[in-house]
Amino acid sequence: MERRVFLGFAGPSIVVMTLLMVLPLAMAIWLGMHFITFDNVLEPQWVGLRNFAAALGDQRFWQSFGFTALYIGVVVPSWIVIGFVVAVLLDQVTGFARGLYLSIFLLRFIIVPIVGTIMFRQLFEPSGLLRWLYQELLNERFRYTEQTVKSLILFHGIWYVTPFTLVVYFAGLQTLPQDLIEAAGIDGASRLQKIRHIVIPHVRSLTLFILLFSIMDSYRVFDSVFVLTGLNPLYKANTIMTYTYQTATQLERLGRANAMAVLTIIGIMVVLIPNLYLSWKEQIAER
């Protein structure tokens, strides 16, 4: 295909992405250099780099960054471990049962995230099932405190996205080289040894893929934190996304929020650049 024809086909899509992704990003930098509230949206006032400096000096910005890092640190490894273990177990089941389990596991994945969080939260509302269990087991009233809210966010995070890693690992297991497994069986390898020496190396590239995508996705966690905290600063459970959102909507500092959004991009570069590099190499090789 010639370049001219390619541009004809890809043109509309490229125009949309340029106008509504590249341009807005440049605009975010520009808006970040202005003082804007909802009253002067269209007549922003130039302040230079002051918003960026203010964001970097803002203790709560760093606090939200810290909680986001904690979220990633707890949730991503859990997704990988639980997803892998359940995929191996599911691989043992065949036929109708397999499809049934898979549909049940996938339910969380298709649900509207906001709705999923509300459903999760229902368990902890007054007379909620888990709230009641908590009180019976620990003999202590369940209250929304900084600690419990943060734990709920982490717990919900683990609950919500495991199906994704599960399905990817499950698909990976279907391509396992059977002859290797058989050879290992003849050599008298135990099941755990097979998992350790054949299965885990086999899914290594998948793990890298899951790791990069999971980190990028959990870096921008928003919906669940929004529902579970109600953006109440009391819980000190802001993630960078909710804090930026709060700065824009509740504090009405649109300029500062834009500056913060731009700054958070730098944070994601750590995983984004290796990811882009890998994809670039892959695409060049494929050509």
Binding site: M17, L20, M21, V22, L23, P24, L25, M27, A28, L31, V41, M216, Y219, R220, F222, I240, M241, T244, Y245, A248, L254, A257, N258, A261, V262, T264, I265, I268, L272, N275, L276
Partner: peptide, 16 residues
């Protein structure tokens, strides 16, 4: 690259 960026970096300009 754009898919991975935090949404707010372009959603806030959309508001503008």
């Amino acid at each position: 690259a754009f898919r991975a960026l935090p949404r707010l970096a372009y959603v806030l300009p959309y508001y503008w």
